[in-house]
Design a protein around this nucleic acid. Structure first.
Lengths: 233, 233
DNA sequence: GTCCGATTACTCGATCCAGAGTACTCCGTG
DNA sequence: CACGGAGTACTCTGGATCGAGTAATCGGAC
């Protein structure tokens, strides 16, 4: 049981809030916002209500009462069940103890980088680097931070994000240096490849020409080629 | 145009592949796998086929022919359109040049960490750290790596992932040290909070007691309290 | 020569989710 | 006292996504 529906951490946050005290969905969203959790847990209304509904269906929370205050719309107050508490504990333990593979947009972008030539990539990464440095400044100046004296315990996720940000800055910066200095391995091949494409050669012709011009660097290709295209017409 | 459907980078990868040469979807998936792109771009059949369909609907690719080879099922070969090439260029430029906020599972977990007490967190993070170190070893020994002599250009995303991995190891390791040494800010408050909960006090009672015991550390609370609960019944 | 398991090539359906839309109320402003 | 804008509290819809399922074929082992 409790099997597949552990994708959206918003559901875990909901369990956490109801573990403190019963609440209605809208209050959950405002509480999360007050606590600066919208920075680390993606929150939007649509998801919140469907997540709550799904938790209820699975018996992890129950509707305690629906209140109408004044002429305001009805509010349904939920509370956590015993099963819900167990699921919360298991789930959070799992998230803390077991790293999971995550796919970020930038990793995807890096892996598709060869679509562009090295010079275009340099320009684009320069823009990125500027933007990342601005982000770091914002952090440093506490702009992105919480009320003074806010306990570290409740901001630990921001510290982690900051560490990742610094790493990305270092990475992009180092990559840029190598690209600009021309010391990046294979940059000559890469540049030539785009030159040939730019001259209107077909992909096959480009491959052919490069194989001749860069024999050694492309030695790995021949190792693969037997298995790679067994039935290329 | 080309507005909202830029969520799934798999679509960008498809455009990239068809920019090289026409292909049928299954070939796209095997090509991506050969090139080790499944590590940085989430790929599964269901998504691939619906992504291809949606690209076609948007006029970014077109079906060139459907081939039946032997008695095998039909294969539809697609090619990229001019609009598709433009979209590919714009999209990849955007991904490289503009950092986007990403939400990871571990950030969510960190932000919900206070649900547990410090001692449980230590145990869980120790498990995580072991696992992260194993991952790093695997990288170092080239287990997770490609054919010898594979050009760096095509593995740059793995380098980035490795940098992030090292940062996470450092972060978790430093956090653990502080928690174990008791030098983590507010750890006493945190521990006491779980002690009181464990003794069966209600959340409100806990808050009350902590406010008395840890006046200074909780000063930020009083600043908020006016605006925080204007209508708490 | 037939059986097994891997590979090829998709299809389907049940969620999931984002974001726009709705509707009502409260509060201040002129 | 009419108006506008912010806040409260959801609802709806259509597309995205995931993973299991299907069905055929091929190559090798026995």
């Amino acid at each position: 049981m409790a099997g597949r529906t552990r994708a959206n951490p918003l559901a875990l946050a909901v369990l956490g809030l109801l573990y403190e005290r019963p609440m209605h969905p809208y209050e959950m969203s405002s509480t999360l916002r007050e606590r600066r959790k919208e920075d680390s847990i993606k929150l939007n209304y649509g998801s919140l209500y469907s997540v709550v509904e799904s938790l209820q269906k699975r018996g992890l929370i129950t509707a305690r009462e629906t209140v109408r205050e004044g002429r305001r719309p009805e509010r349904t107050v939920y509370e956590i069940t015993e099963a819900g508490t167990t699921e919360m504990t298991d789930w959070l333990s799992d998230l803390l103890a077991r790293p999971v593979k995550e796919f970020t947009q930038f990793e995807a972008a890096l892996s598709l980088m060869p679509i562009f030539g090295p010079d275009e990539v340099v320009t684009l990464l320069e823009t990125r680097l500027r933007s990342l440095r601005e982000q770091r400044l914002a952090y440093d100046h506490g702009t992105a931070s919480a009320p003074a004296n806010f306990p570290r315990l409740f901001l630990i996720e921001a510290e982690f994000k900051y560490a990742l940000l610094r790493t990305e800055i270092e990475f992009v910066s180092a990559l840029l240096d190598e690209l600009r200095a021309g010391t990046f391995e294979g940059v000559a091949l890469w540049r030539r490849m785009h030159e040939l494409r730019g001259e209107g050669h077909s992909p096959e012709a480009v491959e052919q020409l490069l194989a001749e011009e860069f024999k050694e660097e492309l030695s790995w290709l021949s190792e693969l080629s037997d298995t790679q295209r067994p039935e290329q017409g």
